Computed example of a mutant assay.
Amino acid sequence: MVTVLAAVLVGCGGRAVVPAPSPIGPGGGGATAAATPEASWPEKTYYRTVEVRGRRIFYREAGSRDRPVLLLLHGYPSSSHTYRELIPLLSGRYRVVAPDYLGSGFSDHPSPEEVTYTFDLLAEYVTGFVEALGLTQYVIYMQDFGAPVGFRVALAHPERLRGLVVQNANAYLDGLTEDRRQFFRRAHEDRSEAGLAALAQTVSATAIRERQYLRDVPGEKRERMSPDTWTHDLALLATAEDRAIQVQLFQDYQANIDAYPSWQAFLRARQPPTLIVWGRNDPAFVSAGARAYLRDLPQAELHLLDAGHFAVEEQAVAIAQHVVRFMEGLNAGAGREPVCLSDRF
């Protein structure tokens, strides 16, 4: 069966809108120029650890070390496991590195009674991780929590940043509904026993399965979501201390919203090449947050995918194709026209 990517134009605040080429899937008898990138064999993914500030940081790595680097930063409630399908799709061309944050995945989980978990802390460890690996230039791919971590890493060393890939990673109030803004304000301000109990429910097994992974995939779309996702996450959120780490991060999330203006100023000043691939069915980080990037990055490329918050779980191949085209244009130093598209499959 031929799978065709149809581009449906959406409003971009008056910016130029350029139709995308239509990639042709398996059995399609070829593709038009500049459409589907040629497939490349994946390289072996390695599962490694490195010591950062006396803590063990776990990471997945694939691809030759002399190739351009993609640094994949994960969201909540996941880890580098969220990129298990994307890494092989990119590793034939690039060096792909995906760490687990301190307190997440297979990295060390120091007790939240010993360490107060903040996004500043996570970013400090990712910056230390990058330095431990000797990475001097990279494109940052960020999803969900990856945005507050990624922006801090980028601002700490802007000379290292070659570009951004933004996947349901918010940096604008436009992307947050009023309910979502109130949730983060309450999490920050309400430290009562009742407030902590309410936050604890957000990291329960039911919440992670039903209100994270399965929320955005009704009907037959649910078949896109591997049960490995929540099973893996819940195995690493098994203890009260593990769950308390994520509660502390929710309590700190308002600091990210307060930092949005500084992130936006960074984007305006630096104009990093940027690809935005956003699941348009996400009710938490709504697609207005994707379009908002174009205010500060008029040359950014935007694709709204038929997917939810965990778009890379649903549309890994489509995202990989966009990333390859973006990276090849970046590596060639090609200029990019502003693009705003809605991808329908």
Rank of each mutant, 00 (worst) to 15 (best):
Y94Q: 10
K221H: 07
V312E: 12
M225Q: 09
A187H: 03
I140E: 01
V10W: 00
A6K: 14
A187G: 04
G27V: 02
L341W: 09
G219H: 01
V10R: 11
I57E: 09
V52R: 06
S91I: 07
F266I: 02
Q212I: 12
V339H: 12
N170Q: 08
A171Y: 04
L330Q: 11
A123I: 05
A169Q: 03
V97Q: 03
H74V: 05
D296H: 13
H81S: 09
R65K: 14
R160K: 15
S111Q: 08
N256K: 08
D120M: 01
S80P: 01
T229A: 14
F145R: 12
V217T: 15
I319W: 04
R15M: 13
P99K: 03
G335T: 15
A205Y: 01
D258W: 08
A197E: 12
Y141T: 00
L90H: 05
L294A: 12
E220M: 06
A205N: 09
G329T: 12
A123C: 03
T3K: 13
E178I: 11
L73V: 08
E61S: 10
S64E: 13
A34C: 07
V50T: 15
S342L: 12
Q201C: 00
T127E: 10
T49E: 14
V69L: 09
H322R: 15
L330D: 09
D108Q: 08
V50F: 02
D174N: 13
R270N: 06
P26T: 03
S342N: 12
E114K: 12
W263L: 02
G335V: 14
E337G: 09
D306C: 05
P37R: 04
V130D: 03
Y293R: 02
L135Y: 04
G219W: 02
G163I: 11
Y253E: 02
E189G: 00
F266Y: 15
